[in-house]
Amino acid sequence: MTTDAPVRLGFVCVQNAGRSQMAAAFAERERDRRDWAERVEIVTGGTHPANEVHPVVVEAMNEIGVDLSGRMPRAISSEELAACDVVATMGCSTLELDAERSVEVRDWALDDPHGEEFGTVREIRETVEDQVTALFEDLESRLENE
Rank of each mutant, 00 (worst) to 15 (best):
V66G: 06
V66L: 14
G45N: 10
E100P: 07
I42T: 08
E96N: 13
P49G: 13
L81R: 15
V56D: 08
R29T: 07
I42D: 03
G65P: 07
P73L: 06
V58D: 05
A83E: 15
S69D: 05
P49Y: 14
L95V: 01
E52W: 05
T47F: 12
E38W: 03
E28G: 12
A50R: 02
G45I: 07
L97K: 11
V103N: 12
D85S: 01
M61A: 08
G91W: 00
V87D: 02
C92P: 04
L68E: 13
V56A: 12
L68M: 06
R74K: 15
D32K: 14
L97W: 11
M61D: 07
E30G: 01
L95G: 04
A82R: 15
R29S: 08
D32C: 08
P55G: 03
V86S: 01
D85N: 11
C84S: 08
R39W: 03
S77H: 09
T47I: 07
S93I: 02
C84Y: 09
I76Y: 12
E104A: 12
A37F: 09
V58L: 02
A60E: 05
S78T: 12
R74L: 06
E100H: 13
A82N: 15
A37H: 14
A82Q: 15
W36M: 13
N51L: 14
I64T: 06
S102K: 13
V58F: 05
G46H: 09
